[in-house]
Design a protein around this nucleic acid. Structure first.
Lengths: 110, 110
DNA sequence: CATATTAATCGTAATATTGCAATAGATTAA
DNA sequence: TTAATCTATTGCAATATTACGATTAATATG
């Protein structure tokens, strides 16, 4: 079906999955790393940097923006995208809780 | 196309994306949380716990196993699945590096 | 205004993902 | 061996994702 049955999971589980999904494509990982590195950006740079077509990059940026992980402001004919730091920190908190579940006890089997 | 152009990204970027992708579905998030919670498991439990059909759960388990995040051992007619702790820690290291990129400097714009 | 520049949107093709019914495989118990 | 139990696999339908050419929208510049 291609459609996840989100209604049978908790809000927290769905939120984790949504964040993870957006990181589930190397182009978006690359975009975010680049934005962190140069600490400021325009879309055209990313097209050159990454090598996908402009509409493709634009679409990936849209998804990142939709989740609030980046923000963009118009600068003349170009758009300046950068990390939305407050939201990034909030996202990290959600993901860290998931990644750092208690791993100390011994398994009862396996 | 539905096909990511992985060849234009680094191994690290592709690895992050692969891990993230597997967390990109709430059923797999839920399965992992349940495995952490009870610290031992069989597939039948998960079918009752999560509410998806048995083949669906089995398929999600397969993906988690493929990435090495869980391991399963046959126990009679059932299979005992649990977190692969060493691999989980290794995965956490990769994901943490990505999530904890330097966020301290001020943006040059935005 | 006309043109250039840059990013967003639309439309579409190819592929991937999700979910489950039906079935097969494996193991135990009688 | 047969039946019961549990998990994996197959096959398929519905939806999602990815990528990009063509186009549009918005803003600057001459």
């Amino acid at each position: 079906m291609g459609l996840a049955k989100t209604e049978m999971f908790t809000d927290q589980q769905n939120e984790i999955a949504l964040f993870a999904k957006v990181f589930g494509h190397p182009a978006r990982v690359s975009i975010l790393q680049h934005l962190f590195k140069i600490n400021s950006c325009v879309c055209g740079d990313l097209v050159n940097e990454i090598g996908l077509a402009q509409p493709t990059i634009s679409q990936h940026l849209k998804e990142l923006k939709l989740l609030g992980l980046i923000k963009g402001s118009v600068e003349g004919t170009s758009v300046c995208y950068c990390i939305h730091k407050e939201n990034w920190i909030a996202m990290k908190s959600v993901m860290s809780q998931f990644l750092n579940q208690d791993i100390t006890q011994e398994n009862k089997c396996c």
